[in-house]
Amino acid sequence: WKITIYDQENFQGKRMEFTSSCPNVSERSFDNVRSLKVESGAWIGYEHTSFCGQQFILERGEYPRWDAWSGSNAYHIERLMSFRPICSA
């Protein structure tokens, strides 16, 4: 599993790669995730830290803005603060 997060939209700004769970992006000096690329595996992104709040399934691909992973939710969530890989047995 591999995911790359960015602190600006369209894959700009600070970037960081992960191959395992991140319970709080702010502990990695990110205020928020504004864009991301899922390089391999599937991940679950969460609205809040500690894997809480609205969940987003993140499959392999590029997500240049928050609405790319938020989709058409009843209330739009511009925040992604934690994530972890989906492990299959």
Rank of each mutant, 00 (worst) to 15 (best):
Q55L: 02
Q8Y: 04
W43D: 02
Y63K: 00
S50F: 09
E47Q: 07
Y75P: 15
M81H: 05
T49A: 15
C87V: 13
V25S: 04
T19C: 08
Q55F: 06
Q55S: 14
G71E: 15
E17W: 07
E59P: 12
S70M: 13
Y63R: 00
M81Y: 04
Y63H: 05
G41L: 03
P64K: 08
F51C: 03
E62P: 05
L80V: 06
I57Y: 07
T19V: 06
M81K: 11
R34E: 04
Y63T: 05
K37E: 05
N10F: 12
G71P: 13
M81S: 08
P64M: 04
G53S: 01
R84T: 09
R79A: 14
S35N: 01
V33I: 11
L58P: 00
S72E: 15
G13I: 01
V25R: 04
F83D: 03
C22G: 00
Q12D: 05
K14Q: 09
Y63A: 01
R79H: 15
L80W: 01
I86V: 15
R28Q: 10
I3W: 02
R65V: 07
S50V: 06
S82Q: 03
N10M: 07
R84V: 05
I3L: 07
E27L: 06
C87R: 12
S70A: 08
R34L: 07
E39F: 08
I57E: 09
E9G: 03
Y63E: 00
S88A: 15
I77D: 12
S29H: 11
K2G: 04
Q12W: 04
E9T: 09
W1K: 11
Y46D: 01
Y63P: 02
F83G: 02
I3P: 01
I77P: 12
R65E: 06
V33S: 00
R34G: 07
Y63I: 09
M81D: 04
W69G: 07
S29E: 11
W43N: 01
M81T: 05
N73D: 14
G71T: 13
F51R: 11
P85G: 02
R84M: 09
F56H: 05
S50C: 08
E78R: 15
I44A: 11
Y63S: 02
F56M: 07
G41D: 03
Q8A: 08
K14R: 13
T49P: 14
S70E: 14
C22W: 03
D67F: 05
S20T: 12
N73I: 06
E17P: 04
Q55V: 04
I86Y: 15
Q55E: 12
Q55P: 11
F83N: 05
L36A: 15
E78H: 15
Y46S: 01
F30I: 14
S21H: 07
S40Y: 06
S72D: 15
Y63F: 10
T49L: 05
P85I: 04
H48Q: 12
P23G: 07
D31M: 09
S35V: 01
M16K: 10
F83W: 03
V33G: 01
I86S: 12
A74Q: 11
G53M: 02
G41N: 04
S40G: 13
S72W: 07
L58W: 02
V33K: 02
C22M: 06
I5T: 04
D7S: 10
E47A: 10
F30A: 02
I86T: 12
Y46A: 01
W69E: 06
E78Q: 14
R34C: 06
V38P: 00
